[in-house]
Structures are given as structure tokens and as C-alpha cells.
């Protein structure tokens, strides 16, 4: 038996979450296979084959994978599932949509957002917005899980896996892809950036003008709180927290963020946390390595100038 990892990619490159899933999969000491489904899978399959410790890459090409739908990807995973003891992926929007379907049709439980694999079927995962860590054991014959990227190291290159092609099942007949609205940014990706600077609602209309120059100098990704996104000052895909993106950069700078638990749960594995807030009683200071009580509208231009 082997392990199947569902690759996440943008058509040309693997997402970091796939390499983190490879590290998580090492817990089983079984051959690791990576499934790459795409319209043109060649480049991504080559990259997957070069990851250390990967035994096989399964390449599946079909036009309907140009914008993968959960209905189609789950049908593909189910076609392959019988050969696998473990089916896993990073905890991404695609995997969160696909793997519960796979688990249900295999009649097995699924584990979401696993942060630690303590034995081949024992897992630690956060519950109650990260306020509690639960250790759970699964006795199902197939283990289906998503893993939190930031909890596992990024697997490096060094492998030379075989690449095999598999035919895709026919496209589903219930659901079709219509369009997308991508937030294009020249900043690093939030989930994998070494530095993240995030703002709260209090930055208001000045969210971008205050954070962007600093982010540019630090080659940082920009994040936002839920309240800030809800208020329309920042797009939804940069929301940091338990229900948004979980980050663990070298440096996390929280600006005007009070520190709601669901936000803290998404940042607390960061190496160094800095909090700048005008309210000395803000809960964020309890989690910060360095705290500064200051007026944001003065402190941020000062910080920007200090980085010159």
C-alpha cells in the first residue's frame, strides 16, 4: 500500500502546501505518490517528480482540469483510491472541497487541518478556533486527511520519481466553472512569505497606502483581519486567521489588530510576532514578542522611514 497526495498547483508550479504534505506523509514510511491533475500537467508533474522521497507521479490531463471542480477531482481520486492506505493534501480551498467527498464515498472519516501526526493513525488537530488541540485516532481502512502547511517543513528537491499517465474520468454533468476573479499581486504568497504585515479595520481607507510601502521594502505579503475584509478595505483572499489563511512567517507584524482568537490561531506559529496598536490593553500584546503602543498613522510612516 502507498500514500496518495493530491497536488495543488497553478498550472505551472506546485503550491508550497504540496511539498509540506510530502513531509507530513513521511510519518507512514510508505511509498509516496503525487497526483497531478491539470489541462497540461507536464511541467508540474516534472517538478513533483523531483521532490525528495516521492516514488511516483500520476499525471492526469483533461481540459476540464483547467479549472478543477471538486466533483471532477473527487471522481479521479476515487478511481485511484483502492490502491492507497492514505489520501492526503494540504488544507487548501480545493482539498477542503474534494477530500470530504472522497471520504464519504469510501465510507471513512476524514481529518481536517491536521497539525501533527503522532503515530500512523493518530493525529493532533485544532478545534474551537484553535483554542483546543484534540488528539484523535482513526480506525478506518483508508486514512483521508488535510494537513496544515505551516506545521510541516517544505520538502526539498532531490528525488527522481517515475511519471505515469492515467486517463481522467469523464467530466461531471452537474457543475461547471464560469469565471474567476483573481487578486493579482506582485507580493509573495501569504501562506509561504517569510515576512507578513497585516492590518486591522482601524487602518480604514489608508490600509494600502500605509502597509504597501513597508511590505515592498521587506518583500512581505500583506494580510488583513476578518473585520477589515468585512468592511471592504481588503480582499477576502488575504484574510489571516483560522477561517482564512494560516501563516507562520519568520516575522509577523500585526498593525491595529486587537487579537481575536480566530486571528491568533492563524498566526501563533510565527517565529517573531510584532504588535503595534494604540490600545495598550489589546489582547494581541499577550502573544507578541515585541509590542509597541502607538498611533498607527504616525508609527507606520516612521517604520517605513526607518527601513531605508
Amino acid at each position: 500500500m502507498s500514500i496518495l497526495i493530491l497536488a495543488e498547483h497553478d498550472g505551472t508550479q506546485l503550491k508550497q502546501s504540496t511539498r509540506q504534505a510530502v513531509t507530513a506523509a513521511a510519518a507512514w514510511q510508505l511509498p509516496i505518490h503525487i497526483l497531478v491533475a491539470a489541462e497540461h500537467a507536464h511541467v508540474v508533474a516534472q517538478e513533483a517528480a523531483s521532490i525528495n522521497n516521492v516514488a511516483r507521479v500520476i499525471k492526469v490531463e483533461a481540459t476540464h482540469f483547467s479549472h478543477p471542480l471538486a466533483e471532477d477531482v473527487s471522481a479521479l481520486v476515487l478511481k485511484l483510491a483502492a490502491e492507497y492506505q492514505v489520501i492526503l493534501a494540504g488544507h487548501t480551498a480545493l482539498s477542503k472541497s474534494v477530500l470530504p467527498r472522497v471520504a464519504a464515498l469510501l465510507d471513512v472519516a476524514m481529518l481536517s487541518d491536521v497539525i501533527q501526526i503522532t503515530a500512523p493513525a493518530t493525529y493532533v488537530r485544532p478545534i474551537y478556533a484553535g483554542n483546543v488541540f484534540a488528539t484523535v485516532e482513526s480506525s478506518d481502512s483508508t486514512q483521508v486527511l488535510t494537513v496544515r502547511g505551516t506545521s510541516f517543513a517544505v520538502a526539498a528537491d532531490g528525488g527522481n520519481a517515475e511519471i505515469v499517465s492515467v486517463e481522467a474520468p469523464a467530466a461531471n454533468t452537474t457543475t461547471s466553472w464560469l469565471s474567476e476573479e483573481k487578486n493579482v499581486s506582485d507580493r509573495p504568497e501569504l501562506a509561504s512569505a517569510h515576512v507578513v504585515i497585516s492590518g486591522g479595520r482601524s487602518l480604514g481607507e489608508q490600509f494600502n497606502s500605509l502597509l504597501d510601502p513597508i511590505a515592498h521594502k521587506l518583500n512581505a505579503a500583506v494580510g488583513a483581519t476578518r473585520a477589515c475584509v468585512d468592511a471592504g478595505y481588503a480582499p477576502n483572499d488575504i484574510q489571516v486567521g483560522q477561517t482564512g489563511t494560516v501563516v507562520a512567517p519568520e516575522l509577523y507584524i500585526a498593525v491595529g489588530i486587537s487579537g481575536a482568537m480566530q486571528h491568533i490561531a492563524g498566526i501563533k506559529d510565527s517565529k517573531v510576532i510584532v504588535a503595534i496598536n494604540h490600545d495598550a490593553d489589546a489582547p494581541i500584546f499577550k502573544y507578541a514578542d515585541y509590542g509597541l503602543v502607538a498611533d498607527l498613522f504616525k508609527a507606520l510612516p516612521e517604520l517605513n522611514a526607518a527601513l531605508n
Binding site: A109, V132, F133, E137, D140, F285, Y287, D289, Y290, L303
Partner: peptide
């Protein structure tokens, strides 16, 4: 299907320091 073995509080971060200026 899943058996909960235990629950625990997440590990706490070491206490930080307050600074006075940028």
C-alpha cells in the same frame, strides 16, 4: 469513527517585551 484520545490547551508562546518607540 474517530476516537478522541485527549484534548489539551495549545502551547503558550514565551512572554514578549514592550518597546517604547519605532
Amino acid at each position: 469513527r474517530l476516537k478522541q484520545l485527549k484534548v489539551a490547551e495549545p502551547p503558550v508562546r514565551k512572554p514578549g517585551v514592550m518597546v517604547n518607540s519605532v
